[in-house]
């Protein structure tokens, strides 16, 4: 199961299912991603213009038609742009630095998200990436908040 990864902060399916040590695990926002396997983003496909949207929409933001249906976006893609965030942005309670970038999903859209690699020098253009679920922070009540991120694909 390639999505269970020895990357800091990556939440395995087992943790999501059982809640690590009984803690509740909640996504930062409903409807963004599915932990899988494989972990993937939840998007929309427009039957009018054919374009894919993320996050999920009812009305297509590209053509304005109400012909969108829910789809699972490809779990893998290629790195298109990247940097690292070194100072906590407004409203963020997690650790810094963290990776930040854009991945072009296979035959799909370009998506903005966190990257599991916080060192820009260890990433390269067009590098194969996969969707993973990571821990953002643990609340005072012990609730583990997760989000989607992109991780370099480790060769099998």
């Amino acid at each position: 199961m390639h999505y269970i990864r020895a990357v800091d902060g990556v939440v395995s399916r087992a943790a999501v299912a059982s809640g690590a040590e009984g803690a509740a695990v909640v996504p930062v926002h409903d409807g963004l991603f599915d932990a899988g396997p494989p972990a993937h983003l939840l998007g929309s496909a427009c039957d009018s213009c054919g374009l894919l949207s993320f996050p999920r929409v009812e009305r297509c933001g590209y053509c304005g038609e109400v012909d969108s249906r829910p789809v699972n976006l490809p779990a893998t893609g290629r790195l298109w742009a990247w940097t690292a965030v070194t100072t906590a942005p407004p409203g963020y309670r997690g650790a810094v630095p963290f990776g930040f970038g854009v991945v072009e999903l296979d035959a799909g859209p370009r998506v903005v998200g966190r990257l599991t690699e916080p060192d820009p020098d260890r990433l390269r253009a067009h590098q194969p990436m996969e969707t993973v679920v990571v821990t953002l922070h643990t609340g005072d009540d012990g609730q583990v908040v997760t989000t989607y991120a992109f991780a370099p694909t480790v060769p099998a």
Binding site: T83, V85, P89, R93, G94, V112, T147
Partner: peptide, 26 residues
């Protein structure tokens, strides 16, 4: 400091995605 804007949704802020200079960097 870093500009805070109501433009981003709360979940985007919580996920660290309201990092304005990061978009400039990309």
């Amino acid at each position: 400091g870093m500009i805070r804007s109501s433009f981003f949704e709360p979940w985007q802020e919580e996920a660290g995605l309201a990092a304005t200079p990061a978009y400039f960097a990309l």
